[in-house]
Design a protein around this nucleic acid. Structure first.
Length: 262
DNA sequence: AGAACCGCCTGCTTGC
DNA sequence: TGCAAGCAGGCGGTTC
């Protein structure tokens, strides 16, 4: 599932391919996406990431915001036939970019440009306001795992990276946010930055169907310590990794390294 | 207001 | 082998 490192990977690759290029045509293949205006004739002035959104800045002050949700992928498709489950297509003057999404959760929105409104400062890679986090988010009653996955609290973190971050930080997923000290939060965010940066360097986690713009697998799946490893031995302490359910989602953790803290 | 839950989707895995 | 049930999960919306 595309999380911050996967989306960042796509943004970097897209930047190389389509910035300053003109759009010849956009095509909708899924009724769910009907209503997206045809962007014919506009130029792409920039590509950047906002949380897990990919933002294409257009030359008319508007922007296209793409969210891949779970199974969405963007492929550079030189001349090939459309892949199965192609939902939307961006025909550029130099290439074609296809949005492929088997489960149809992905969204594409055309909206007024919000550049300069990146005031949230809740992104651990592009700018994080620790004081604001400590004031607004840290005192909450939700457990730390679910807080990490809330886009408004911390941008871009989904299930895989949340599990990996907590393992690296040595914090139990059960731990209530309000019971974590400022020092512990600092250490947690330091661990988070390391995990996310490695994810970006490895071009994402291809544990199931993630592929980059060129259809290549990432390599971060080889870095995972707990996610998807129920019953396996923890590489740090030799304990057995467990899987629990939190908010309807699987959490993987090592009680040896992270404690129980229910 | 904040926390918890629901529904959107489809392909793959599991169990009988 | 075949078919149904179970599972995966981000996030906006709804309910408690």
């Amino acid at each position: 599932m595309p999380e911050l490192p996967e989306v960042e990977t796509l943004c970097r690759q897209l930047r190389r391919e389509i910035v300053q290029r003109r759009i010849l045509e956009t095509v909708i293949y899924d009724q769910k996406l009907e209503g997206i205006e045809n962007l014919r004739g506009r130029r792409i002035n920039g590509v950047f990431r906002r949380g897990k959104n990919i933002v294409l800045l257009l030359d008319d002050t508007k922007e296209v915001m793409i969210h891949l949700r779970m199974t969405g992928r963007l492929f550079l498709s030189p001349k090939k036939k459309r892949e199965r489950h192609t939902r939307w297509s961006l025909q550029m003057e130099n290439c074609r970019i296809d949005l492929v999404d088997p489960r149809r959760f992905a969204t594409v929105k055309l909206q007024k440009g919000q550049i300069g409104s990146g005031k949230e400062r809740n992104d651990l890679i592009t700018g994080f306001d620790f004081k604001k986090f400590m004031a607004k988010q840290a005192p909450r009653k939700v457990n730390v795992k679910m807080l990490l996955m809330e886009g408004k609290a911390v941008a871009g973190i989904g299930n895989i990276y949340a599990c990996e971050i907590l393992h690296r930080a040595g914090i139990s997923p059960y731990k209530k946010s309000a019971r974590i000290t400022s020092e512990q939060w600092k250490a947690l965010f330091q661990a988070a930055r390391r995990i996310l940066k490695t994810g970006i360097e490895k071009r994402g986690t291809s544990i199931s169907d993630w592929r980059d713009l060129y259809g290549r697998q990432g390599e971060n799946q080889f870095e995972l310590q707990v996610y998807g490893k129920e019953g396996e031995k923890c590489s740090s302490c030799g304990g057995i990794i467990s899987r629990i359910n939190q908010g309807g989602r699987s959490t993987y953790f090592c009680s040896g390294c992270q404690g129980i803290d229910q």
